[in-house]
Amino acid sequence: MKTDAVLRDNAEYLRAINEAIEKQDAKSEAIVFYSKDTALLGTVEWVSGFIKDNTTLTGSARYFNRKVTFSNDGSAGLTYCADESKGYTKDRKTKKINVTPATENSYVFYNDRLRKNTKGIWQVTKSFSERGSKACQP
């Protein structure tokens, strides 16, 4: 199904971001594979921030309420929430974990646009996020 393919490729995009942060590689092959256009630029910028700060991620994030819609132009829209209340940054040099308390800002709403490329991969082309969104609060 098309919906399953969109969800699968988006999950791989999220894994690619985490891997790029861990490997300190803002222009990793996986990021380029699963994103393009403004989403690629934004992802490179996001990962570069971790590299500049010499930090990585630890803990976990949970994604939920994933909803896919399809447009007449062949693109797909995907909205979902992230619970980052158990996700933290970690200093790569000192190994110190920046444990922060869960707040409304621990929940993020995402609204992504995806388009299938010639290889059949649904690439994220645009991504909008809203930290603290009421739509994602427990």
Rank of each mutant, 00 (worst) to 15 (best):
73 D>Y: 03
80 Y>Q: 00
76 A>N: 02
4 D>G: 08
79 T>V: 15
97 I>C: 04
76 A>T: 00
92 R>L: 03
85 S>C: 12
106 S>I: 00
62 R>Q: 13
138 P>C: 06
86 K>M: 13
123 Q>E: 08
94 T>K: 07
31 I>V: 09
73 D>E: 03
74 G>C: 10
51 I>H: 08
123 Q>R: 09
11 A>S: 11
132 G>D: 11
47 V>C: 08
19 E>N: 05
136 C>S: 02
104 E>K: 11
67 K>S: 02
1 M>E: 12
42 G>W: 14
109 F>A: 01
96 K>T: 04
116 K>E: 14
23 K>Y: 01
113 R>T: 11
89 T>G: 03
49 G>T: 15
66 R>P: 01
70 F>S: 11
2 K>C: 04
76 A>L: 05
119 K>D: 10
69 T>K: 15
69 T>Y: 15
52 K>Q: 14
55 T>M: 14
21 I>S: 03
61 A>Y: 13
32 V>R: 09
38 T>I: 13
11 A>P: 06
104 E>R: 10
27 K>C: 02
64 F>R: 04
82 A>P: 00
116 K>W: 05
70 F>I: 14
45 E>M: 05
130 E>C: 00
118 T>I: 08
32 V>H: 08
28 S>L: 04
2 K>P: 05
68 V>A: 15
2 K>M: 10
43 T>L: 13
94 T>N: 02
49 G>A: 15
51 I>R: 09
42 G>E: 12
101 P>K: 13
95 K>P: 01
63 Y>A: 04
74 G>E: 01
34 Y>D: 13
108 V>N: 12
44 V>T: 03
75 S>G: 06
37 D>Y: 07
11 A>C: 04
27 K>W: 06
127 S>Y: 12
79 T>D: 04
66 R>Y: 07
84 E>L: 00
127 S>T: 08
119 K>V: 02
130 E>A: 00
74 G>Q: 07
15 R>G: 06
28 S>V: 02
96 K>W: 00
34 Y>E: 14
131 R>N: 05
75 S>M: 13
26 A>K: 03
22 E>H: 12
87 G>W: 04
34 Y>I: 05
107 Y>F: 12
40 L>A: 14
104 E>I: 07
5 A>G: 04
55 T>G: 04
47 V>L: 13
88 Y>T: 00
89 T>A: 01
28 S>I: 05
4 D>M: 08
82 A>F: 00
86 K>A: 11
24 Q>K: 06
14 L>R: 14
101 P>D: 14
119 K>W: 01
103 T>W: 07
99 V>L: 09
36 K>E: 15
5 A>V: 03
57 L>N: 13
88 Y>P: 07
53 D>Q: 05
84 E>Y: 01
33 F>Q: 09
83 D>C: 08
47 V>Y: 15
117 N>L: 07
114 L>F: 02
58 T>A: 05
108 V>A: 11
36 K>T: 09
78 L>T: 01
133 S>T: 10
122 W>E: 12
131 R>K: 13
122 W>P: 01
57 L>P: 10
24 Q>Y: 06
58 T>G: 06
79 T>Y: 05
119 K>A: 09
41 L>H: 10
20 A>K: 07
53 D>N: 10
37 D>E: 05
21 I>D: 03
89 T>Y: 07
26 A>P: 02
119 K>C: 04
25 D>Y: 10
